[in-house]
Design a protein around this nucleic acid. Structure first.
Length: 399
RNA sequence: GGUGAGAUAGUCAAGUGGCCAACGACGGCGGACUGUAAAUCCGCUCCCUACGGGUUCAGAGGUUCGACUCCUCUUCUCACCA
């Protein structure tokens, strides 16, 4: 039991600092029923989560399974500074109302994964504001500039002459102080957070609270392309709020190799179960596609429902395996005869008439399942199902 | 503060007076093959009801029949020096 717990906790992690202590905590849980705390910090600015964010949540859920109480920290105070990740420095400050609103949508999304009864949602302004100037000073005396400059991106920026504001130095200190206040036993975060995570450990020692948190770092999840990290701006993400059909399709579009990565980081299947799947593919008793479908079903079910997952799979089979038209297509209307290229643009399935013409020329455009080749085609009165490529559909009603 | 280099389409990167809507690579899109996988092959990749027209090469002027290419100023980036 303990061994299994340890394995699941280590699963997929990039690095764990002070694993022996994690072991001690778990032993205490199994032997004496003692719980422990695991902290993870989140930015209140972006409640728009994608699967990359859920890697961390998934790990927290694992901890919950093995006796942890989660400190879900919303960094409302630290958000005013902005983590110095090297990106363009200043970000706009959020109003109190915004933060509350964001926190609310966080909860909606997050508790699809986490057990709310074992989670405390906390805001760090709660204890940072009361610190006051003297508290802040005390905090800053615990560290020095030379060590602060050890942080990789500070080092690079300093050497290349890019400005670093003093407030950015404060950021890691505050994040570390959160761990002091919360008396966290373990903190988890992305690998890019290493410096800040270790700061928590260091400050707990400096403040002599009688423990030093262990740190568990999760790797950054690759996006659909399998190369770059999953991010909204790269467009290679699966959003937790994505439509069930979309989500299903996106998961199925990943490569076989990436599938295992997703299994490891996102699935709730145990490592043993996953090994069985891998074995099945090796000896050809399982088809990779069906294994991928299982993963897609699991993910869709998590954020929607089991029924939605089933429906998504059926829809997918219909559309792709049997190449039928999807059941749920966006509808448009227009008046009078319409030029086909214009119609494609109006229905948002082509970006410009130039592109639409090219698509037609290349045989990518279908009307009611029939491939067309005439760029000059005029659509007269009636209803049409327009299609560009394999994925873009629209229904157009010409009046 | 001084000196030098540079700013080209989604990104990187050619192009130094007409052959330039601009080589190439990547990405993206489409097609073939498939499992809407990967790999591979082929085509497309500024806009416009288009064998033609329009607007592009940091910005503003100028020289020229003609400029991404030359000149001036402006803004920004980078390197070296201080």
């Amino acid at each position: 039991m303990l061994q299994e717990a340890l394995r699941e906790i280590q699963r997929g992690s990039a690095e764990i600092i002070d694993m022996p202590r994690v072991e001690t905590l778990l032993k205490a849980y199994y032997n004496e029923g003692k719980t422990y705390t695991v902290k993870a910090g989140f930015d209140p600015t972006a409640p728009d989560l994608h699967l990359g964010h859920t890697v961390l949540l998934q790990k927290l859920a694992t901890f919950q399974k093995y006796g942890a109480r989660i400190q879900f920290l919303i960094g409302d105070f630290t958000a005013q500074i902005g983590d110095p990740t090297g990106k363009s420095a200043t970000r706009k400050t959020l109003s109190q109302a915004d933060i509350i609103e964001n926190a609310k949508s966080y909860k909606e999304q997050v508790f699809k994964i986490l057990d709310a009864s074992k989670t405390d949602v906390v805001f760090n302004s709660e204890w940072i504001n009361p610190l006051g100037a003297s508290g802040m000073l005390t905090l800053t005396t615990t560290y020095n500039v030379a060590r602060m400059l050890e942080r990789d991106d500070f080092d690079k920026r300093y050497k290349s002459g890019v400005s670093i504001s003093i407030s950015e130095f404060i950021y890691p200190l505050l994040q570390g102080y959160d761990s002091v206040h919360l008396q966290s036993d373990i903190e988890i975060g992305g690998t890019d957070q290493k410096f800040n995570l270790l700061m928590g450990r260091y400050l707990q020692r400096a403040y002599e609270i009688g423990k030093e948190q262990s740190v568990l770092m999760m790797p950054i999840l690759e996006g659909l392309d399998g190369v770059q990290k999953m991010s909204k701006s790269l467009g290679n993400y699966i959003g937790v709020a994505d439509e069930a059909n979309d989500m299903f399709g996106k998961v199925l579009s990943i490569s076989d190799e990436l599938m295992w990565r997703y299994y490891e980081l996102l699935s709730t299947k145990s490592l043993d179960e996953i090994d069985v799947l891998k074995q099945g593919i090796t000896d050809a008793s399982l088809h990779p596609k069906s294994v991928k479908e299982d993963l897609a079903m699991e993910i869709v079910a998590r954020f929607h429902s089991a029924e939605a997952a089933k429906a998504a799979k059926e829809e997918f089979d219909n559309v792709h395996a049997k190449s039928q038209i999807p059941t749920d297509i966006e509808e448009f209307e227009c008046d009078g005869a319409v030029w086909i290229a214009k119609a494609l643009v109006d229905c948002n399935i082509a970006p410009s008439t130039s592109q639409a013409r090219r698509d037609i020329k290349q045989g990518a455009v279908k009307i009611d399942q029939e491939k067309i080749s005439d760029e000059q085609l005029q659509l007269s009165k009636g209803e049409y199902i327009l299609q560009v490529g394999k994925r873009k559909f629209a229904k157009l009603k010409v009046n």
